[in-house]
Amino acid sequence: MKKVHPDPKAALAGLLRDDMTVMCGGFGLCGIPDELIEAIRESGVKGLTVVSNNAGIDGVGLGKLLETRQVRKMISSYVGENKEFARQYLGGELEIEFNPQGTLAERIRAGGAGIPAFFTKTGVGTKVAEGKEVREFDGEHYVMERGLVADLAIVHAWKGDTEGNLVYRKTARNFNPMMATAAEVTVAQVEHLVQPGEIDPDHIHTPGIFIGRIIHVPTREKRIEQRTVRKRKEPDTAAAAGGGQI
């Protein structure tokens, strides 16, 4: 069985239908499967429930699917950077389910690992816990959260082999590895496609069993959401992002 497909459209052929649930990797615009998002847009599929930490920005990433009203509901932790999102949400056209970021990550991890529910301290006593079971363990209160699965996951990796073994790069890893495990079919786009054996098995982040289809996206324009820099003459410690003294 060949996992490698020639382009995003071919990789998604037969997988898309209205009202389905799609997990989409990425944090902000970092590590998003932009070419696959574009192909979903071109397919015209509608009524999507999209699980993604963020909702892109206007016209970029998931912002593309919001523009075309293909999304019915978002399951996210933070959606602050998108005007079209705000417009549709305030107009009642778009539903949103906010999950704390760690709860969202763990729901996806659990879903992929066959765990239907788990208990967490996060959100106890807040709106997030309303209507959910709260239980005491060892004198502390925990809220029950459900594992999350999807019909389709789309992920972005730095390198992949033709068997679907994936390696992510730096903070572009984020939600991609869990999402790859939690859908009926996962389609991965990779910047570098190599032959089996070219990636050290000890360095593989996502084993190929989780990847159904794979495409090569060699010429990728990566967007930066907040470009922050420091002047060459300033000492390191003057930069706002700071850093530990080693």
């Binding site: 730096k170 820099v229 060459r232 992002a241």
Partner: peptide
């Protein structure tokens, strides 16, 4: 182990902090 902001021209889109700012 988050480092300071990058020097101009050395920004990496794959390396950001939780505020989506480029870092090192």
């Amino acid at each position: 182990g988050m480092g300071p902001f990058p020097f101009e021209g050395e920004e990496d889109p794959d390396l950001i902090n939780a505020g989506k700012q480029t870092i090192t």
